[in-house]
Computed example of a mutant assay.
Amino acid sequence: MAITVTVVDDHPAILAGVRAWYAEAGRSIQVIAAGTSVDVAWTAPGDQADVVVLDLNVGAERMPYQRAVRRLVDVGRKVIVYTMQDSEEVALTCLELGVCAFLTKSEGHEHLVAATIAAAENRPYLPPTLAGAIAADRGPAQPRLSDREREVLTQWFQCESKQLVAERMRITPRTVDTYLDRVRVKYANVGRPAPTKAALLARAIQDGLVGLDDL
């Protein structure tokens, strides 16, 4: 089944390039809507897309990027930020807001294609800029996780679904959910919320719970 994408960007050359990269990808990826404002994500067929690729500086209103990202994430959209900004602070803020991945436009088409496939399959993806930002940011307070919580967490990062985690560990998907909910609560309690899989992966890497080799 094809992955459908809405692209929000105000540079015609970028839009043309993204369309071409997806068309040449080994996996079927289709841009079904594109525009210069986040409003395109709510205009048919944009509201049917699996993934939204978002530039942070678009739209005539020039809304703060935090508002644009939150608006998409809060309704369950899978968002990939694709921007010229290379600020570690912006990258981490976007991750905390719930984006699936943060890429700079200098990182090349391979990373955008790979991040799009990962987002559609509910898998985290760490391009170089995001990995560097995560590695440079050490959380001030680490939650105390049990060995079992760490094990479930690592398995979840390696699997496409909680069902696969359950099968590997011979537990129920509901038990997987329970462990992951406990981990999220513990992170929230130390002031480091992790609402999404990508954000939770960032926290785990920051705290040395998992390494890139584990993925």
Rank of each mutant, 00 (worst) to 15 (best):
Q155S: 15
A166E: 01
Y125N: 04
Q163H: 14
P173L: 02
P143N: 08
Y125I: 05
D147S: 13
P143V: 12
A136P: 01
Q142V: 08
D137I: 00
Q158Y: 08
K162T: 11
M169S: 04
R174T: 13
M169V: 02
L145Q: 04
T172R: 07
R144N: 07
I134P: 02
Q163T: 12
A141S: 11
G139P: 00
L153N: 06
Y125K: 02
Q155L: 14
G139N: 06
V152F: 06
L145A: 03
L130S: 00
Q163D: 13
L164H: 14
T129D: 01
Y125A: 02
P143D: 07
R150S: 11
R150L: 15
L130T: 00
R168F: 07
P173Y: 07
P143Y: 06
P128D: 05
I134Y: 04
Q142R: 12
I134Q: 00
R170P: 01
M169A: 10
L145I: 03
Q163G: 11
M169N: 03
P173H: 08
R174S: 15
V165H: 09
L164T: 14
P128R: 02
G139S: 13
L145S: 06
R170K: 14
M169T: 03
T129E: 01
R138D: 02
E160D: 15
R150M: 10
A136F: 03
Y125T: 04
I171T: 11
A135P: 07
T175W: 07
R148S: 13
L126Q: 00
T129C: 09
P173Q: 07
T154S: 14
L145Y: 04
